[in-house]
């Protein structure tokens, strides 16, 4: 009987002690920041708190991600500091201090220390322009800092800027931003507007060398390499057709020549035709 009472009493004491210790945990006071915490500049070197206890953990909840912070205890409480010098997405955040089941939150606007060099992003659309259709290009500009925050693009505090630009009709590859290869865009040459054509008889191998070119678009750009030029000629009996690719503005083809026949030759690119030339020994 005595043993039973002793056991019950021990249990009661143990339960009371555990309850008291739990109550003690709940009674932890909210740490008091040494300075006001409405705005917090990241990375910060040290935030002092007046607090009791030695089992604190600190987390900074930025708008996008939680960042673990370090704690150094002092005589009056602790100092919270950040290891990494990196910045964050600016915005509303919470500094969370917790010890056991005690959680304390401090709402603050989080901002970065001065960023070094904001980057202007200049996006062009379309990336390839052909003067046959339009030389207009859409330009969208925005500026971001090195931590992916959008920064005002102009003094009016606009975040985005858009305009329609009219490109020079000079074929080539250009860059919207000189040092950014990703900003490259192309101005292609357009279709040819006329086809100069001439032919020369080569007595040695009894062939006629026909040459079309230089083929240029309406802005004087050489038409793109690989454009198919069709040479069409007839000897009075049959019509022959030969295709060749344009290189550096010129297309060449050889036509077998029978001195007894008269030939008519012209060149064609899509719907553009050259003049028709007569090929015979006299000419």
């Amino acid at each position: 009987m005595m043993i039973k009472y002793t056991l019950a009493l021990t249990g009661l004491i143990w339960y009371t002690l555990v309850s008291l210790s739990a109550c003690r945990q709940h009674l932890l006071r909210r740490p008091v920041p040494a300075s006001e915490l409405t705005t917090l500049t990241v990375p910060f070197e040290g935030l002092a708190f007046v607090a009791t206890g030695r089992n604190w953990k600190a987390t900074l909840l930025t708008f996008t991600q939680p960042i673990e912070l370090n704690i150094e205890y002092t005589n009056t409480g602790f100092i919270v500091f950040q290891d990494s010098p990196a910045g964050i997405i600016e915005g509303p955040g919470k500094l969370c201090l917790n010890s056991g089941n005690n959680h304390f939150f401090y709402d603050a606007w989080l901002q970065n220390q001065e960023f070094t060099s904001p980057e202007t992003i200049d996006i062009r659309s379309p990336k390839t322009v052909n003067p046959d259709s339009s030389l207009n290009q859409q330009r969208i500009v925005f500026t971001i800092d090195e931590w992916s925050n959008i920064v005002s693009v102009n003094e009016e505090n606009h975040l985005f800027f858009e305009e329609e630009v009219f490109l020079l009709p000079l074929a080539g590859v250009y860059r919207a931003q000189e040092y950014n290869p990703l900003s490259a865009f192309n101005v292609q040459p357009g279709s040819c507007v006329s086809i100069p054509l001439n032919a020369q008889f080569n007595e040695g191998d009894q062939h006629i060398l026909a040459k079309a070119g230089p083929l240029k678009d309406r802005f004087d750009n050489l038409v793109a390499d690989g454009t198919v030029v069709t040479f069409i000629y007839d000897d009075g009996q049959y019509i022959y057709r030969t295709e060749t690719a344009l290189i550096n503005g010129f297309a060449l083809t050889e036509i077998p020549f029978d001195p007894g026949n008269n030939y008519q030759l012209y060149a064609q690119v899509h719907s553009t035709h050259s003049i028709t030339i007569q090929l015979n020994l006299k000419s």
Partner: peptide, 26 residues
Amino acid sequence: IDTMSVAIVLLYQGDHWRIDAMQVLQ
């Protein structure tokens, strides 16, 4: 519950729209 405005830049890369930059407007 918190209500705010957020400026966002999205780029279409691969099969998705992806977030590239953001600003929570103060």
